[in-house]
Simulated assay, not measured.
Amino acid sequence: MSSTETETQEETYVSYHDGGVFGKRRVLTGKAAKPTFNAVPKIDMRRIYSDNLDDRKELAKEVGDACRNVGFFYAVNHGVEEQILDDTFSAVKRFFDLPTEVKMEVHNQKTEKFRGYEAFLEGKLDPSTRGDLKEGFLMGEDATDPEQKLPVRDLPFMSTPRNQWPSHPTATFFRPALYTYYTAMLTFSRRLLGIFALALDLPEHHFDTITRHPMTNVRAVHYPPQHSDADVGIGAHTDFCWFTLVCQSRTEYPALEVLNANGIWVPVSHEPHSFVVNIADFLKLVTGGEWMSTVHRVRNMGGEERYSMPFFFSPDEDARVSVLERYSKKGGMYEEFGVGEYFQKRLVVDRRTHLEGAEGGEVKRSAGY
Rank of each mutant, 00 (worst) to 15 (best):
A199R: 12
R297Q: 12
D154T: 12
D132Y: 06
T12E: 11
M333P: 00
Y307L: 09
Y369C: 02
F22H: 03
N77A: 01
S15C: 08
M104L: 15
G302P: 02
E105W: 09
Y13G: 01
F72R: 06
D201F: 05
R94Q: 14
S159P: 05
N69D: 05
L133W: 15
H222E: 07
K113F: 15
T111L: 07
E335Q: 15
E204V: 11
Q226L: 11
Y342D: 06
F275I: 03
D54I: 00
K57L: 12
V102S: 01
I279E: 02
G131Y: 04
G235R: 00
Y223H: 09
L125D: 04
T244L: 04
T36E: 10
E204D: 03
T144Q: 11
S90R: 12
A367R: 13
D231A: 11
F243G: 01
A66G: 07
L283E: 05
A171L: 04
S167R: 15
A255D: 03
V349R: 11
T183V: 11
G123C: 11
V268Q: 06
N217T: 13
I84K: 06
F22A: 06
N52Y: 02
K61F: 11
S293W: 03
V76N: 05
L125P: 00
T211W: 01
E7W: 12
E118W: 09
F114N: 12
S3W: 04
E252C: 09
V339K: 09
A177V: 09
V63I: 10
V102N: 07
H168S: 06
R26M: 05
H354R: 07
T287L: 01
P166C: 10
G140Q: 08
V286R: 02
E122V: 04
G360K: 09
W265C: 01
F89C: 09
N163V: 11
E62C: 04
T180Q: 14
R47N: 09
T353D: 08
K329Q: 11
R299K: 13
R130M: 14
F137T: 00
E304A: 09
A91M: 03
L324F: 08
N38H: 14
Q226W: 06
P99D: 13
H270W: 13
T170Y: 10
R212K: 14
Y74H: 03
G263L: 03
T6H: 07
V323C: 15
